[in-house]
Design a protein around this nucleic acid. Structure first.
Lengths: 336, 336
DNA sequence: GTGAAAGCGCTAACAC
DNA sequence: GTGTTAGCGCTTTCAC
């Protein structure tokens, strides 16, 4: 327990070589250093025997890089972001970078603080995912010369890779319209949008896509039919209830902006007859495997996580962090 | 970009003090060092102006601690583990430890390798959550003198904090039995268990609890009624289909061992009439918010994540890592 | 009250 | 082919 960890000095002493040789051997750098094969083996063997573990703080300090790549996300406890973490880890490891994922709870202060802390641990790159204030993080990173980029929500001071919300929403809506049929009541012959936050970048894009599709099919759209009531099941439940009351029934189609909102919507739909619900073409922007458990058909937009992070790592690989280009990645549509 | 980051030497030079004073001031250690208030302010101000950020690799190297606490989990992309990550972060931060969560995909080799890497970054503590081979990780940690403990799945070489699976399963089953009623066919007057892996520690405990409750209520249990078919929706779907065929209908009650298995079960239940399904008392070991969307009542076991990690951090706070005690934390029961 | 200096474990010139 | 040495940026003992 209190046994000092062996260092390269110990290895050098015990194998009668020098620290520099040991270092080179351990790092596989012995192309440049023409170290004797026999010496190398001796060292490697002893290292294994002693279970030598390099001290990366020391190594990082010396070479001024840590081998760390950070990603900040709003929260772990969410299907989308946890899938991001999973894929991020894999892509980072492929590049021999050690991934650190930290959540910042949509709190701009915590975002900035986390960025600073990660920088103090000398992360080499930082992915800023779904940040509330990405530009503040960018300013910090830029000041410290840390290569970084935005994912999921764009910023103005670094490259951004985001979902093509507008395309996804348009496509989802168009397909819903195609599979729907006009209800008896012309009053209810409309599509409604529920969920999300009015100012939110993603919501804005989705409303745009939704509107485009509706206008194209119906020749116009009533703004009353868009209710960005928040990302919350209860609010969504209230929203759909209000729609139902206003129209005297369900609309021809419904665009639910997130699975959390979908929860609330379904809570309300459960109070209706299945036949009534099946008359309404329902889609959700966001994917949840549990949706297969619903008793009515549901069309979902599933974000292309590998596509998003793949593009992000392309930028990392290329080293071009200076643009503030926005790359859009199309999501896919999935039947429940 | 290439501007060298300011160090305490720069701050010392510019404020005409010494690195040691700057260090003390920046660390708030100036109780021990009786440093002049005025000097302190000068330094603090300049540090802010220059956006000085300490280099934690250097500091960690010197003081032989990193301020890092690691947790390995099987995967991010899972409700239970991602909730663990979320809570872990909070509890770690409360203790001024910086949390690093890494997934190891239930792969013993990756678990060991990850432990070694985290150790090389000098983590001060390691939580080993849901590990396939916790003892192998323990051996590595012990060798390097790293305080660590197991969570969710127990090991023999470190303290473990786990869910009381047996209690939870027994309670769930007992309540399901209480709310159920005998079907017309006596052949179907039984409870079935679906999902999980036969050898798996958690599944074993849950089957025990399930059996106890069934035996108590019915005076016996048929082993045919327990099908640990795997943690997989398709397998669970096949399992419930087989049960249905064998019994000529649904059993009196059903214990589904995980929400992923529940998905498969629901897929099958959707093919039946709602009335038929409502006749069967269904429970799931594991919680998912989406379950509120189901059209039949469901009783769920929700693991007490804060309870589990709270206990784990109690051990960390107390510094007693030498026992291999197993602490059990009771889950709670939740109505869908 | 403050400064000088040693050294944490490692890497990379540079010397031989 | 191999060893010596000077730091990386920080903390901490010790001296004044």
């Amino acid at each position: 327990m209190s046994r000092r960890e062996p260092t390269i000095y110990d290895l050098a002493r015990l194998t009668k070589t020098s620290p520099s040789s040991v270092s080179a051997i351990l790092n596989g750098t012995w192309k440049s250093r023409r170290v004797g094969e026999e010496t190398a083996n001796r060292v490697l063997e002893l290292a294994k025997e002693l279970k030598y573990t390099p001290n990366r703080q020391a190594s990082g300090l010396r070479r001024k890089r840590s081998g760390l790549i950070g990603m900040i996300i709003p929260m772990h406890d969410n299907r989308f972001f946890s899938a991001m973490s999973q894929t991020f880890e894999r892509l980072a490891r492929d590049r021999h970078l050690y991934p650190i994922v930290v959540s910042t709870l949509r709190d701009p202060k915590l975002e900035a603080e986390t960025a600073r802390t990660l920088i103090s641990y000398q992360v080499e790159f930082l992915l800023v995912t779904g940040a509330t204030a990405p530009d503040a993080v960018s300013r910090i990173c830029t000041h410290h010369g840390i290569a970084h980029l935005n994912v999921d929500l764009p910023g103005k001071l670094a490259p951004s890779v985001i979902s093509d919300n507008r395309w996804g929403a348009r496509e989802l809506t168009t397909r819903l319209i195609a599979r729907s049929s006009a209800p008896r009541s012309s009053q209810r012959n409309r599509f409604c949008f529920v969920g999300g936050i009015p100012g939110d970048y993603n919501t804005v894009g989705r409303i745009e896509g939704f509107s485009e599709a509706v206008v194209e099919a119906f020749g116009g759209m009533d703004h009353v039919d868009v209710d960005a009531c928040g990302y919350d099941a209860d609010q969504a439940e209230a929203a759909i209830r209000a729609i139902y009351k206003r129209l005297g029934g369900l609309p021809r189609g419904l665009f639910v902006n997130s699975t959390i909102a979908l929860e609330g919507v379904v809570r309300f739909l459960k109070t209706l007859s299945l036949d009534e619900v099946r008359q309404c073409a329902i889609g959700s922007y966001d994917w949840d495997p549990f949706a297969t458990c619903l008793s009515f058909p549901l069309l979902m937009v599933r974000q292309d996580i590998l596509g998003l992070l793949g593009k992000a790592f392309e930028i990392i690989d290329s080293g071009k962090f200076d643009s503030s280009e926005i790359i859009q990645v199309r999501p896919e549509l999935v039947e429940a």
